[in-house]
Simulated scan of single mutants.
Amino acid sequence: MLPYLRNVGRNGEQRPVALSHRGFSLDGLENSMVAFEAAVELGFGYLEIDIRTTRDGVVMVFHDALLDRVCSASGPVAERSFDELRTVHIQGAEPIPTLEEVLTRWPAMKLNIDIKDDASVEPFVEIVERLGAHDRVLVASFSDRRRLRVLRLLSRPVASSAGQACSALLWLLSPLGQTRRLARMVRVDCLQVPVRHAGVTVVTERFVRRCRRAGLPLHVWTVNDPEAMERLLTLGGGVDGLVSDRADLLAEVMHRRGCWPQ
């Protein structure tokens, strides 16, 4: 198992991974340094973040293609320079951080990084290589093409979760007992899926057991209800990780299970 996916307790047992989705903020300050700091204070060792790249090649931690939903400005992130984005604030209060700022601010933190655009591929690789952050990142993207391009460019292995197409393929073919073989073929170390998608229940007891037999860690997003968290952590032997907007509630659940802090 790659270092990113190892989350062991004092007795050497593998614990479920808890990921704070875009940090923790009840004030809409997603993907901001204050949201990340709040997650750190709760005891999180894993953050789920998103990246996009500016017109002049700086990798920013931001989810949407457009600034409009969460910022004091409008228009595409990709059409702004880094200097221009420095004047833009999340909810009018917090600056948009760079990936490098997050990686260097918390040098032990592990980051689940959703690469949102093609322009981020090479700048992302340059940052990981320069900072030697290979063991601290998991490469994610809805685009398997983009994800695989990143993996080919990196000089050392990093953890990677399946994109949309590979996730669907792994789920559909899991009854055939080919999960482990297929995961290796498409360079997947972890599967991250919603409980339901397009009206179909993805995370079933049978699917969890198949992933466990294949040695493929299964993370579920985005789970915000404590009862649902508890159910998933026992379903079919238990999922291997949860992603939540309610980092405070997830921390409480993990604490009750003796898995806290990370």
Rank of each mutant, 00 (worst) to 15 (best):
V208I: 09
F82K: 13
I49D: 02
R196Q: 14
D240N: 15
S244K: 00
G215H: 06
V193D: 02
A251G: 02
D189H: 10
A162Q: 03
Q262M: 11
C190H: 07
A159P: 06
M254V: 04
L216D: 01
R209E: 15
L111A: 10
S167I: 03
W171P: 01
D56S: 08
V243T: 15
T179R: 10
P123L: 06
T179L: 08
S120G: 07
V243L: 13
G92H: 06
L169E: 14
Q262C: 12
T54F: 13
S167T: 08
L169D: 07
L5D: 02
H63V: 10
A35D: 07
V40P: 04
L176K: 11
S244G: 05
V128L: 11
T222G: 05
G163L: 04
P97W: 04
A108Q: 15
E30L: 09
V186K: 01
T104F: 02
V40C: 12
G9Y: 02
R213L: 12
L47H: 10
N224V: 10
L218R: 06
D68S: 11
L182M: 12
G75Q: 10
E230A: 04
G199K: 06
Q262D: 14
P226F: 03
A168H: 14
P16E: 11
R149W: 05
H134K: 11
G28Y: 05
L5H: 02
P97N: 08
V17L: 10
N11K: 13
G236N: 10
L103F: 06
W221F: 09
T54H: 06
G215T: 11
P157F: 05
D27E: 14
M229W: 05
